[in-house]
Amino acid sequence: MSISNDIWAWISALGMIAIFSFIFKENPVYRFCEHVFVGASAGYALSVNIKSIVDNAWDPITKEGKLSLLIPVILGILLYARFFKSIAWLSRWSMAYMVGIGSGLSMFGVVNSQLLQQVRSSMLPLNSVNNILMVFGVLSVLLYFFFSVEQKGAVKHGASLGRWLMMITFGVSFGNVVMGRISLLLGAFETILGNWLGLL
């Protein structure tokens, strides 16, 4: 064991231990670190976005004379109108623009790549157990969410199969969540046991 003499390794490890202390009891050291984390993350996000504004708007406007870029700058500034009651409504213009772009883009994208492509990939020859499961599995889950007809007879049986299949899907998801969370824990241990205490 050779404990690190790097100040940054100490800061990392002690910060992590302070956060982990929460699992035993909420305490002032945890609260302090939590606030530092929130402030630091917001400050960092601010810095990368300032760079983005300089690169994408300030420089092209001032150095290349691209005055059309004043429009998004104004829309960006208008977002802050929400902090002033009398002109708060102006921030909706920027919001409307952002949501409009998002909606227009997503409409085409979801239909093309998520809907058509996924439906196409479900059209498989029914020549193996896996293919049969895939085709009827997709249909049965869709049937479970189909509320336009009364769920009785064949529809009911199909929907019931869909419910069972979703249970397997959720079980797989839970298994993956457990694996993912343990990976995060191991990453934390690597910092504490390895970088700081030199045990690894």
């Binding site: 996924q118 993956n176 969540v177 694996m179």
Partner: peptide, 26 residues
């Protein structure tokens, strides 16, 4: 992909839209 996102990404891998995937730390 992070392990948590693997199940949601599988349909894309199966359809070939994503050619291959490495799943998390494993």
């Amino acid at each position: 992909s992070s392990t948590v996102n693997v199940p949601q990404t599988m349909p894309f891998v199966d359809s070939g839209q994503v050619k291959a995937m490495l799943a998390g730390l494993r």
